[in-house]
Write a protein that binds this DNA or RNA. Structure first.
Length: 483
DNA sequence: AAGTGACCTGG
DNA sequence: CAGGTCACT
């Protein structure tokens, strides 16, 4: 079952966005369909002319695994009657929901590794959204529809399995609270409910009196997952308006923008993003992707399989603190970054409070950089990437060799010429400030468009006149030892 | 404050 | 040489 969010290429260009070096974990699980884990949920995405298409193909597996794995979290909500047994019991029951033709058969909770076309057969014939979110002021319409066929533009769609929401899992709730609490994100009535810790069982009773339970839960459930996407892709930000602003401020951007619409900043998980960009140092995008995937594969949790591709959660920091992790990562080809990863994981897990990285979202940019660069293997550039892509610092322009080359080639910045040798902190600041002055408070977003355009320039037209410019690097910073 | 080399690996 | 960082000069 696919749903769609009405969006154009100007709002989001899915394929380019997912492959332009922001996130390293999206996989094309079948032609034109991209899958990844967002907040412990497996999502599959696709795009048609006028909509972003999405589904959650592994949701059944997720719920079962999460609930059986996280009893301690369930315990936190003691007011919500009982715990695992009852929830699982509800899962295990076969539901027949009358007019909705929902048939749901859950098999064993521990065999999700093996079954490809498993017993979680769920058919939902109809599952309309409520219209209650029409108050949203998001510049893009978020009115959604469900569909059984995403449209003619898509080929070879996977047979998506779907379930209605049999129960709210507590683990998911806490996750949602984090997301919904963003100041910049318009909250729906539902999220407000979640914020105030509702009694789900009671809510269920109330609702079942007025509506078919299948309808209600399915619609609510879809909204929650859709909201994850709205948050992840920051769909509340009007990209077209920004493109116009940047174009009027910068002729060069104007030239680029027509060929590269729909490039926005994804709001990624800080932990995953931090480790991913630690891997990025002095490295190719293809190898970065491989390394991030290995971290998930070897130290994360398998959440499901989409068209033969296994998908894993990114490991929590504590999973990367073991005594043998560094040597293992070396064997896996991480090189000197193995030490950085373990060092960072240890500090994060043992010397920082729970949710530390997420808490930086509410701190000013300078403080974010100060804190992030305390981690081993994290310099200014990596810290900037995390700040921009995970900590809501939309103005940050991460200056790397690529951006330096763009600055030299396409812009006139005093002191930045083809003779520029090293990317010193002072130069970093100067270039960053130049783009912030040029583009405004979403300068980091604009920079990503330039960056994506440059990547494409190199991948599309192979033989680029690569003037063998002496690639400048090097920089320095206060000492930071592994301890 | 700015400059150097080393650091892992593989496309 | 690749979307750097670290330790020293």
């Amino acid at each position: 079952m696919w749903r769609k969010i009405p969006l154009t290429k100007a709002d989001i260009d899915l394929k380019t966005l997912l492959t332009c070096g922001q996130s390293f974990t999206w996989k094309e699980t079948s032609p034109n369909i991209w899958s990844n884990v967002i907040g412990n949920v497996v999502f599959s995405l696709s795009q048609s002319e006028n909509a972003l298409l999405w589904c959650t193909p592994c949701r059944d597996q997720n719920e079962i695994k999460n609930i059986s794995q996280l009893p301690s979290i369930t315990r936190n909500y003691s007011h919500a009657r009982n715990d695992n047994d009852e929830i699982l019991g509800e899962h295990s029951s076969s539901l027949s929901l009358g007019a909705n033709h929902i048939h749901n058969r859950i098999t064993n909770s521990n065999d999700s590794h093996s079954h490809k076309d498993n017993g979680d057969t769920v058919i939902i014939s109809k599952c309309p959204f409520s219209e209650s979110d029409s108050h949203s002021k998001s510049p893009v319409s978020l009115k959604s529809e469900t569909l059984t066929d995403p449209g003619n533009n898509i080929s070879a769609l996977p047979k998506a399995k779907e379930s209605h929401n049999r129960c709210r899992k507590r683990q998911d709730k806490s996750d949602l609270l984090t997301n919904f609490k963003r100041k910049t994100t318009k909250m729906t009535a539902l999220s407000n409910d979640l914020d105030s810790e509702p009694d789900y069982d009671n809510a269920k009773k109330l609702k079942t009196e007025s509506e078919p339970p299948g309808h209600y839960y399915c619609a609510e459930d879809d909204k929650i997952y859709e909201q994850k996407l709205v948050d992840y892709f920051q769909l509340g930000v009007n990209l077209s308006a920004l493109y116009k602003q940047w174009s009027s401020a910068d002729k060069h951007f104007q030239l680029i923008s027509d060929r590269f619409p729909g490039i926005r900043i994804m709001r990624q998980d800080p932990t995953e993003n931090l480790f991913a960009f630690i891997c990025s140092s002095n490295n190719h995008v293809s190898r970065i992707s491989g390394m991030v995937n290995k971290l998930s594969q070897k130290y994360g949790t398998k959440l499901g399989t989409v068209d033969g591709t296994d998908l894993y959660s990114f490991p929590t920091a504590d999973k990367l603190t073991g005594s043998k992790v560094e040597s293992h990562l070396r064997e896996l080809g991480f090189g000197y970054r193995a030490k950085y990863i373990v060092g960072t994981a240890k500090v994060l897990h043992k010397e920082r409070p729970e949710g530390f990285l997420n808490s930086l979202r509410d701190r000013p940019y300078e403080e974010c950089i100060t804190e992030l660069t305390k981690f081993l293997g994290v310099g200014r550039k990596v810290a900037d990437c995390v700040a921009l892509m995970s900590l809501d610092k939309s103005q940050v322009v991460p200056v790397d060799t690529h951006v330096l080359q763009i600055a030299i080639r396409d812009y006139s910045i005093p002191g930045v010429t083809k003779n520029t040798r090293s990317l010193t902190p002072a130069l970093h600041n100067k270039i960053g400030k130049y783009f912030i002055d040029l583009y405004g408070d979403h300068a980091g977003w604009a920079h990503t468009v330039l960056f994506a355009a440059d990547l494409k320039r190199f991948s599309d037209h192979k033989p680029v006149s690569k003037k063998t410019q002496s690639a400048p690097k090097k920089k320095q910073k206060p000492a930071k030892s592994a301890k």
